[in-house]
Amino acid sequence: MSALEFLLAGTLAAALPLLLAALGEMVVEKTGLLNLGLEGMMALGAAIAFICVYHSGSHSFGFLAASLAGATLAMLFAFLVIFLKANEVASGLAVGVLGLGLSALFGKNYESLTISGLSEFGLPALSKIPVIGPALFTQDIVVWLAITGTMVLWYILNKTKLGLIIAAVGENVEAARAIGYPVGGIRCAAVAFGGGMCGLAGAYASTVYTPLWADGMIAGRGWIALALVVFGTWQTGRVAFGAVLFGVLSLGELTAQAIGVAIPSQVLSSLPYFVTILMLVAISRHRRHSS
């Protein structure tokens, strides 16, 4: 396999945890909250999924348990922020630290154990395309489900009443309250959804992408996902595109090899963060011009 083929094949899988976590956080942020605990919720999901798959052998069970774990941890955030009106930043960090710690605690006895990953299958016809076909269109089922799920989420957020309600809560709380929407309930649901998605993202990382559990294995992907939401300017399609882009960058040195240029890998690794800062600046410029 050439470096390019390897990159094509690896990109979607590398992008997937970023995509799931970022889409979850995007919905949270659309309701006007910011949960900084992604890294912890992903780590907890990863540990729980690995433990469940190890004992049950069922990936579906692992993913289900991971999403529940992520959502449960997220509910702590929701309880602190929505019910107790505690500081958002501190609450998010508390959840993040707690998740990281719990994941290491639960996963301690499972390090260096192995489970089987998921088999990949190709889409008929498309996977027959030479070079890019087998590389790009042969993926595991979670990738295909995630792509479908992204489209469904786009539809819900942009074409349904629920999407409008979510936007209303985020953009004008007072108005949403006046109409009679249960703002707290909607935010709770969004936070739980965000946590569940982080759990799924972690599960993919620990049971499919690299089927093993190691402390610290999320390795900053939660923070990248947080950056991704900004990069994607809170729009499903752009977040998905960003996930692929950041996925390529996360394969850092490999990418440099494929392009065939000698850039220090640190430059590539810091690109997502750099681009995100530029994005934050650009958004506010745009806001200023349009208003």
């Binding site: 609450s91 960090l93 990281l100 719990l102």
Partner: peptide, 9 residues
């Protein structure tokens, strides 16, 4: 970490 996280929460 768990202890710190809990303490903050």
């Amino acid at each position: 970490e768990v202890f710190q996280g809990m303490l903050l929460a």
